[in-house]
Nucleic acid binder design. Structure first.
Lengths: 342, 342
DNA sequence: TACATTTCTGGAACCGATTGCAGACGAGGA
DNA sequence: TCCTCGTCTGCAATCGGTTCCAGAAATGTA
């Protein structure tokens, strides 16, 4: 492994000049720059990022804390974040923050503290106030996806508005007997999501003068089996069956559709279903959905932290930014069957 | 940010002693150790991993190169790898190696080279010989999941045996008209997987004296929509419909089942379906499958590289290790209907 | 008691870069 | 012609630890 000294010798210049030539800052004549560059490539020289970090104080690493990896929404965020970081020359350090209390505190107390990352992106964390303030206390640029999170600039769709939009779509089609299948508060997600989507649902009902009661809402796991279970439960009893279901996520919606199919309930003739996400499987199931783009949200979060890193003194203008979400019509929603039950 | 010097001053000892006390190597009396520890915690001191890496040459980082993130198999591997790494005090640097040629070369030529990782885990990469040798040339411990990969110790299920097992299960049930839905060679995966599973399928047919011809095999995308499309195509024509389908992955199998349901073909009465993976959705679809455990494979890969890192001179005994995969029976397979077509 | 070991500690060199400073040089302006 | 300013380069200090070495203290052994 050749060091900067070897390159300097070979190019017949000093270490300082090599450093300036390769990093591109400071004055170097183009002729020596070329000498240095060819010497470096002949030796296969690459800078030691450790040595360089030591003096500059910059690691070129960004830490990403995420509660789940193996789920479409989260996986897409990681993909988006990774691409954006690599594009900008940063490395991505991944921390999967599960519910495991030991692992959690280890991440906060050991890993994040060790001056190894320049910035942090926190993805829809259900995070304790202690944990949030220990993040802020690092004094590093932070961005969150989800939230809002105390003291941290965050980014997400407007969950209330998205849920309202979905529900309004059903109402506009003429549905009056609508149920919401939402998230389980014990899930490994920023619980704001669940309560806000429920809120948007309720808002839309209220605005249309439709009643909301204990039977209008079922909580389940935020995945296909969760939606399936909820669907079986809801649709099993023909007398209290709604004509439309707003599922808080497409995976849940797909589960509901599978349950409906199994019960011989036709979608959308007997039951309209709408979700949120525009999941890749939505097409296959003809699922009408409110589209959001997690990969892009990941990129935006990267922008947020990188800009803080690279333009001194810049801080994000808003503590919470909402990104657009719009309706994607497919075949799982339609007007209720004429003379439908109740 | 207080440095080691401040701790030394406060504890009334030298930098050297602080370093020994906190790192636990070398002799330190327990009394001074305590002095140092309390001084350190009072100051909120944490070592600079850069400075420490600079002299030790160890970064405590492991790079993970993976072609896809947002897919069950890959996501599970990442989860397993992450957990195992954090447990052992290492950080995970994630590189998503897509087909994008620019991004690829950037990862190989820029990121991996910069002395930032102690070891590398390469996950089912479709990797060029050049890329493989540039990995080996880094001279760092490497482990692969998938493979075999030239010169790199790898780890996977025995794909041929798993495919044979699946096919034999169908044959044992009495099926003689079996098709295989496998992976598309253009997919972003180690193509070995596809050809080996096809191989195992052919082996099992041959061993049972069953014919294999061009109509026995369909290639498609390795996901649910891919399986659905293949299913529609295969099952659409009643006259050449098989009584059983072996799908090379559970996601594909689920797609096939969805297609069958849509065509009114009963699983397993009219069609048996088996997959590989034991995907979390297998339960929901009653899918019989050959189970493998990607999270555990991730952990094993971590073991492989960490052991190389921490026990000098140790190298993995086998260039390729196979991990077990066993049949999980559910309701998607059964004997063919008596007097079934052809 | 004398000597050999083991434990403990500090000084100083070192890891491999970056950067402030100062000196040298050439070009343009007065 | 003399000055100033911008360009170019090298020296040396610095980032924040780790570790070799040597000497002192404590412990064990003959």
């Amino acid at each position: 492994m050749s060091g900067i000294e070897d390159v300097a010798l070979r190019a017949g210049v000093s270490k300082a000049t090599v450093s300036r030539a390769l990093s591109g800052r400071g004055y170097v004549s183009s002729i020596t720059r070329h000498k240095v560059e060819s010497a470096a490539s002949e030796l296969g020289y690459v800078v030691s990022s450790n040595a360089s970090s030591l003096v500059t104080g910059r690691t070129n690493n960004v830490g990403v804390i995420i509660p789940v990896i193996n789920q479409w929404f989260f996986g897409s965020i990681i993909e988006g974040v990774e691409r954006a970081l690599i594009d900008r020359g940063y490395d991505l350090m991944l921390y999967n923050l599960t519910k495991d209390i030991d692992a959690r505190s280890r991440v906060f107390e050991y890993f994040l503290v060790r001056k190894r990352v320049d910035a942090i992106i926190a993805v829809t964390l259900e995070i304790s106030p202690d944990e949030a303030s220990s993040l802020v206390a690092l004094g590093k640029p932070i961005a969150g996806i989800g939230g809002p999170l105390a003291g941290i600039p965050t980014l997400s769709i407007d969950d209330i508005a998205a849920a309202r939009l979905a529900t309004e779509h059903l109402i506009a089609l003429g549905h009056t007997n609508i149920m919401h299948v939402g998230g389980d508060a014990a899930e490994l997600m920023d619980f704001n999501v669940h309560s806000k989507r429920l809120q948007g649902f309720m808002d839309a009902l209220a605005a249309a003068g439709l009643p909301f009661n204990g039977e209008s809402y079922v909580a389940t796991h935020f995945d296909i089996p969760g939606g399936y279970a909820a669907g079986k439960q809801i649709l099993g009893d023909p007398r209290r069956r709604p004509t439309a279901i707003f599922a808080a996520a497409d995976e849940v919606a797909i589960g509901v559709i599978l349950a409906a199919r199994e019960l011989g309930i036709s979608v959308p003739d007997d039951l309209s279903v709408i979700g949120i996400d525009n999941h890749p499987l939505a097409d296959l199931f003809g699922l009408t959905s409110i589209a959001q783009n997690p990969a892009k949200q990941g990129e935006q979060a990267v922008d947020l932290v990188i800009r803080q890193l690279e333009t001194a003194g810049w801080t994000p203008p808003n503590i919470h930014t909402t990104v657009p979400a719009q309706l994607v019509m497919r075949s799982s929603t339609s007007a209720p069957r004429a003379g439908s039950p109740r």
